[in-house]
């Protein structure tokens, strides 16, 4: 069973979002998503200062047999990207919600977080997908 922390928000494309105190959010991919991909061999992070639209592909996570886009869950400006992933993409596998974070985004609209799923809704989504 996947780990779905209750204090985070989620997008249906399997990104998690943590609200930071300063009007920014940290974004990564869920434990469920990293598990489905398998051992990651490469993460392409977005350029800092890039403006992104919610739903836009902004990063790529690669395993040996698959490559998946990571979508911006909210609109805003990328203010940081996890440089550690350059040499250690496996951090996404070992610590999806911590050291495996992918980017930080400064929100255009703080209310945008309301559009995202809470932990219960996300848990239900991945249960349905597993059965499907």
């Amino acid at each position: 069973m996947s780990n779905v922390p209750s204090d985070l928000k989620y997008a249906s494309s399997h990104e998690w979002v943590r609200q930071d105190d300063d009007g920014t959010v940290t974004v990564g991919i869920s434990d469920h998503a990293q598990d489905a991909l398998g051992d990651l061999v490469f993460v392409e992070t977005p350029e800092i200062d890039r403006t992104v639209e919610a739903g836009e592909a902004v990063a790529v996570v690669e395993s040996v047999k698959a490559a998946s886009d990571v979508y911006a869950p909210v609109s805003g400006t990328v203010i940081d990207a996890n440089a550690q992933l350059q040499d250690a993409p496996e951090l996404v596998n070992t610590d999806a919600y911590g050291e495996g974070w992918i980017m930080r985004i400064k929100l255009d609209d703080p209310d945008a977080l309301e559009e995202l799923m809470d932990a219960d809704a996300y848990e239900q989504l991945i249960t349905e997908e597993d059965d499907g």
């Binding site: 061999v41 490469f42 690669e62 395993s63 040996v64 047999k65 698959a66 490559a67």
Partner: peptide
């Protein structure tokens, strides 16, 4: 191989 057409 994730660069290639059969995956990407």
């Amino acid at each position: 191989q994730a660069r290639e057409q059969h995956i990407r």
